[in-house]
């Protein structure tokens, strides 16, 4: 039976690993290659590298980070941040990424999803969707590192991306992100039930019980997390044992 996945995410800024809250107040949390090696030693299921502030210079730094990680980490690597064109996707796949995450481009140039899926297969196209609740109580998709409200409904956006060829959806609640207060469980479940492709929960995991709840009460296929591994004493190993002992089908 397919195992449920725990995916540490590494947010990158100027070649360093950072972590913030609600997509702001970023703190330096170390060297990403060192972190990748530690996660590799902990035998995590996958790793996700997201450049949150893409520039010409950071593109080169990301290249170095992925190349270094890919020489030692024999697990799936997803890379995202600043992906605009098919050539960006090709570039990231060539340097060692297995999947490429698109976020703002999925809104601005959705045909990129189709083009990349046709050329490289839909299994390597991850669409990353960041959303937040507005004052009217409606969720909308935000892009450009959560600085621009597109007004789009996240579920409609996700459905459109899947129809174009997205092979996986990374769904992040900006309101929950970095709070350690738990995922936006009900909404994750609503989206995961509505699409055929796997949905990865993101934003808010603070306790191992959050992983358990997401993996047992919602239809998500995987949980991603960062703060819980940086700012608490939990590790992917502890998470796996906790989940396994609770009857969740994870790798041990």
């Amino acid at each position: 039976m397919l195992k449920q996945r725990i995916i540490p995410s590494l947010l990158l800024k100027d070649g360093r690993m950072v972590k913030g809250k609600n997509f702001g107040n970023f703190r330096d949390v170390g060297d990403p290659v060192t972190a990748a090696k530690v996660y590799n030693a902990q035998k995590v299921d996958e790793l996700m590298f997201l450049d949150i502030c893409p520039t010409a210079q950071s593109r080169e730094q990301v290249r170095e980070i992925i190349q270094a990680a890919a020489c030692e980490c024999f697990m799936p690597l997803t890379v995202g941040g600043g992906v605009r064109m098919v050539e960006d996707v090709r570039h990231l796949l060539t340097i060692g990424a297995d999947k490429v995450a698109m976020n703002s481009a999925a809104v601005r140039t959705p045909e990129l999803i189709r083009d990349a899926a046709e050329l490289f297969g839909d299994q390597c196209v991850v669409v990353s969707v960041d959303y937040r609740l507005n004052q009217a109580g409606r969720r909308t998709v935000w892009i450009d590192s959560a600085t621009l409200d597109t007004g789009l409904d996240p579920l409609e956006h996700v459905k459109r991306c899947v129809a174009l060829g997205a092979g996986e959806i990374l769904l992040t609640s900006i309101d929950q992100e970095g709070t350690l207060e738990g995922y936006d469980f009900d909404y994750l479940d609503e989206v995961a039930r509505a699409v055929k492709v796997p949905v990865i929960a993101s934003g808010g995991a603070g306790r191992l019980e959050d992983f358990y709840r997401a993996l047992t009460t919602t239809k998500v296929s995987a949980v991603s997390a960062a703060s819980i591994f940086h700012f608490t004493d939990q590790s992917p190993i502890k998470a796996r044992f906790f989940l396994s002992n609770s009857g969740v089908n994870v790798r041990v």
């Binding site: 449920q4 055929k196 492709v197 796997p198």
Partner: peptide, 25 residues
């Protein structure tokens, strides 16, 4: 869900040298 993405256990049907030394999981 499709694609089938993630870690899954295989069941070995033929004993081949290529499978030697695999872990129990």
């Amino acid at each position: 869900k499709l694609p089938h993405v993630g870690w899954n256990d295989i069941v070995i049907e033929r004993n081949l040298p290529l499978f030697q030394g695999l872990k129990k999981e």
